[in-house]
């Protein structure tokens, strides 16, 4: 394998990994920009989406439709938690909202254990998704899941970009993130905006959950936690509260993780990937809290 082929293979890995991070991080950032809520329960929407898909498949629903329904279920759960848990603490101190989301994670994951037990379950895939492709006589390879991850992420992000520029609710979402008081004054229906934001964020996370489960081959109740932590890192190093920031952060983090993994093994750093990534997060918080895109401090009333 020559250097060019090696690099190409690593880029495929990085893009596939980064897509997933971006997809989850975008939702975190949207919610944070609107509510200043550091939403720990966001990762669990991945679990909800993946289990939703699994249950539908077991009920005999064809794969693609099952995925769609799984995503719809995570959107619904997003709506429900916003209504019953986050709306009552809206405007409360940051820590109160953060703790509410921690409690929600705990509830959702234990609900997952109660319904599906804590042992991983097989996540069945149709044959066409298990296909892999080889280039350069097999020295470069990728799976259709890699392709699909990138393709669907791209579609989702393009949709989001279109949505926040061309629809009234999307404009309202950006406006409310910039200046909540002014949003009320121009008559933006902030409740609607927040509910739609939860629908988008949760369905993106649901999609990411299905893709994650497809790559791992299994689903389990805690599956959302590690990706959530990574998405936090992505969103913060990109610029917490910024949609482009979350996307950039996602791909940067994906590239970084692949890079760490491809370091010579005698350095012994590969296993410390998470420690390195979180050290980077702390460094960003300290030295560049606005992230790569440089988010400004929020407007205070």
């Amino acid at each position: 394998m020559n250097l060019l082929e090696y690099t190409f293979q690593q880029i495929i890995n990085a893009v596939s990994q980064g897509s997933m991070f971006a997809l989850v991080a975008v939702g975190l950032s949207i919610i944070f920009s609107l509510l200043r809520l550091t939403n720990f329960a966001h990762g669990d929407m991945m679990m909800v989406g993946a289990f939703g898909t699994l249950v539908m498949q077991l009920a005999g629903v064809p794969f693609l439709l099952a995925v769609l329904l799984g995503i719809v279920i995570s959107a619904l759960v997003g709506i429900i938690i916003e209504r019953i848990a986050y709306r009552p603490v809206r405007g409360a101190p940051d820590v109160t909202m953060l703790l509410t989301s921690v409690a929600l994670t705990y509830i959702l994951e234990n609900l997952g254990i109660l319904l599906f037990t804590s042992s991983p379950r097989n996540f069945p895939l149709p044959d066409w998704l298990n296909a892999s492709f080889n280039l350069a006589d097999g020295r470069i390879s990728f799976t259709s899941i890699n392709l699909l991850t990138f393709g669907l992420t791209l579609l989702a992000l393009l949709f989001l970009a279109w949505f926040v520029r061309n629809t009234q609710v999307g404009l309202g979402m950006r406006a409310a993130a910039e200046d909540l008081t002014a949003s009320y004054l121009v008559g933006i229906n902030v409740n609607t905006v927040i509910v739609v934001a939860f629908v988008m964020a949760s369905s993106f996370a649901g999609l990411a959950g299905v893709l994650w489960a497809a790559q791992a081959g299994v689903v389990e109740p805690h599956m959302g936690f590690t990706p959530l932590l990574k998405a936090f890192v992505a969103a913060i190093i990109g610029g917490f509260g910024s949609i482009p920031g979350a996307i950039i952060g996602g791909f940067v983090l994906g590239a970084l993780e692949v890079l760490i993994q491809s370091l010579p093994s005698e350095w012994g750093l590969g296993a410390y990937r998470d420690a390195i990534v979180f050290t980077l997060l702390i460094a960003f918080l300290l030295f560049r809290p606005g992230g790569i895109v440089g988010v400004k401090q929020e407007v205070k009333l």
């Binding site: 520029r165 009234q168 404009l171 309202g172 950006r174 406006a175 910039e178 200046d179 008081t181 002014a182 949003s183 004054l185 121009v186 008559g187 933006i188 229906n189």
Partner: peptide, 18 residues
């Protein structure tokens, strides 16, 4: 209190939110 990161046109469209 205009929305600083949004265009003039978008600001105007937001004025018609209701």
């Amino acid at each position: 209190r205009v929305f600083p990161g949004m265009t003039v046109l978008e600001n105007l469209r937001l004025g018609a939110s209701q």
